[in-house]
Design a protein around this nucleic acid. Sequence first.
DNA 1: TTAATATATGAGCAGTTGCTCAGATATTAG
DNA 2: CTAATATCTGAGCAACTGCTCATATATTAA
Lengths: 116, 116
Amino acid sequence: MPTDRCQCRIVHEQQVEKARKGALPPSEIDKLAQFFKAFADPTRLKILQALHQEEMCVCDLAAFLGVSESAVSHQLRMLRQMALVANRREGPVLYYRLTDAHISQLVLVALEHIQE
Amino acid sequence: MPTDRCQCRIVHEQQVEKARKGALPPSEIDKLAQFFKAFADPTRLKILQALHQEEMCVCDLAAFLGVSESAVSHQLRMLRQMALVANRREGPVLYYRLTDAHISQLVLVALEHIQE
DNA sequence: TTAATATATGAGCAGTTGCTCAGATATTAG
DNA sequence: CTAATATCTGAGCAACTGCTCATATATTAA
């Protein structure tokens, strides 16, 4: 048993119970955390913000971000797996876009918050 | 020079330029990423969601989450530093609350998204 | 077919993160 | 004062992350 585990006799049961009742199911929490993780990195955030304006190829994104194409590609894979971006092939070039325009709504809400 | 750096001659200058113009300043991007990071962990997400309903002490949060008080305290420190939560002392007990009720708006927007 | 381009991918590594443990601090009771 | 409770904090560690490098795949041109 951990030494720092709560030993108070009054663990306000009502409040804990209320929190339990209002809690989201664990699977939803994990999905949400995963979702937010996509926005929790400067590189990915820049990618998402750039794609909000216009579709771009890997090459252009790399130039825009000033990082290697490999790095961009790895991040795009993650964003693809989370279904936040999709691509379209034109010859050898893959153009990426946001799958959902209202993804950027989230960025806007957050932006409002930090600018207060 | 990295071996995987873009060697295409046509780095669509217009699109890159457009992305550059529309980009948020780096400091804003970093702040945003930092902000999203607070939501990108299941434990913190549960804390934020619980506090949205009602203020709680560290002890109760630990009981609710099923983790050590130390772990909760560490996370609360981070959330405090990001000004997402604040506390109120009542004797030896610290009650934590969200600093801004519309923090949970962000969670709701995200929730809508993942449930589509 | 071969060569060139554009992108993807796996391994590996340094930096970060979220926890535990041990101990420190703050408040209250006696 | 001492003891007990509630919380905080630093160190350390395993797991995770975001990158680089080397290589693989896909498409097109010759």
